[in-house]
Design a protein around this nucleic acid. Sequence first.
DNA 1: CGGCGAAGCG
Length: 606
Amino acid sequence: MLISGFMKYGRWEESMWYFEMNPFKNVVSWTAGISGFLKNGFSFRGLKLFLRLLESGVKPNQVTFTSVISACIETGDFELGMSVLGLIVKTGFEDNVSVCNSLITFCLRMREFDLARRVFDRMETRDVISWTAILDMYVEMGDLGEARRIFDEMPERNEVSWSAVIARYSQSGDHLEALKLFRQMVQEGLRPTVSCFSCILSTLSNVKNLQAGRNIHAHVKKIGIEGDVFISSSLVDLYCKCGDTKDGQFIFNSIKKKNVVSWNAMLGGYSMNRQTDEAKYFFDNMPTRSNVSWGIIIGGYVENKQFDKVFEVFNEMLLSGETPTKLTFSSVLSTCASVASLEKGKDIHGKILKLGFHYDVYLGTALTDMYAKSGDIESSKQVFDRMSERNEFSWTVMIQGLAESGFAEDSLSLFEEMKRSSSVAPNEFMLLSVLFACSHCGLVDKGLEFFGAMESVYGQKPKERHYTCVVDMLSRSGRLHEAEELINSMPFQPEANALAALLSGCKTYKNEEIAVRTARKLGEFAEKNSAGLVLLSNIYASAGRWVDVSNVRKLMREKGLKKSGGCSWVEVRNHLYSFYSEDGAHSKLAEIYDILELLRSEMMAP
DNA sequence: CGGCGAAGCG
């Protein structure tokens, strides 16, 4: 008792002293020692103690084994776990429910899902914990359907089982189902746990339901768990996601024992509210950082298109010795794609290879996309071909990459290959690429065929973009009447781009009549819609009608609209320098102009 | 003395 008493407060040195001094060690005191080490994060020492227990001749019991398996989970050593399993069988504990429960968890943490299922299947009696463990396995595998089936069929459910499915629905974006289950759980008279409250708070923050979030806030306050780090971190997240960093800050400041997650929640709050400077300041002053913190700050810069900062901070991260997460790599890769920096992309590809992350579907997809967007379609294809597993996103980026790089035929045949060889269903993005590909290699009738099949065959209702693409396709090939008809038959307002595409077709094929009608439509459209105004001004500009251009620009100013500013960048010695056409410009603008002036006078000199 | 759950996100 004394031992576990000290262990509880992290004073394991003292407790071990008592343990060693105790001449009458029995299985309970040994087990207490092992689990004490575990609770304080010293699983390896716990395992060494277990070996000493075996040497001493004391027989371990079922409690010892459950603790030892937990230690194996911590160390992540599968072989070790298997040796312990051997011992369990030898000592006849293989039918003990608790031991089996911990074995299931061990197997699923080692991602040995088949083995976990075998352990579960051979159990004669199972309790709610066994069922929850196997439920968790399907949750972990991402098989939400099977998880739900298990959940519905479980003979008994406890608050942990509910938590597991609710969390999964929340994470996979089905917030409404998560909320529904939460309500059902409460109705069935179960008291949501701390983790369940924190999970439902994050669900509410994802759907930005501030009112319901406030209600939960009031409730957790009433039952006295407001101060829990999980709860309070979720609250910080809730208020920040709803755009209120001030309230988020208030909660954050009130957290007594902040951990890295609370710090990250607040950091994310600044990042997502476009307060990148505050975020950076906060980040620089954080007492604890994890690779997640780096990921958040980098993600914030990506979101705000501050691409130079992305690389700057990413380099800093690598120098600090922190290993980027897959998410961080994918943010940085998307930045490489945005600025079409092949060199940087290749560099990062190398780093990913070194870490062995290239087997990851997610990163493989990000690499495929980066190469395609940077113009290196060969490498893009190579990465894609080597991926051992491909999901919907992987196929989408490759089909899109080929279509947009001008390899229309390859894009179309890859689409056919996907339908043949994979279980991935065509989505709206792929179909858009397919239409784009048809449009760009003049396969108008084939394109129309795909367009017609979208809803009937692929179950995808054509959206504005699809219509625009087909209008563009028809206009490019001179089928102006069909294009105009399509615009008139659309079930919604056409995009300004569709009108512009038809207009440019009219210009190419010299059709004054349709041009006049379309221009009038675009004009009407522009009165309500800023995108129309921007396009209209571009069309006037290309026709050299400068008076009209200046009228439209004036209208835009009156409406407080701004054409998004131009941006350019240059890479010098591993650093990306951005230049903006309007405000912000560059901090060394004056110096740059001075040097330009100097260069100019040099050139002018005889 | 023990076994099931938990935060950042494309």
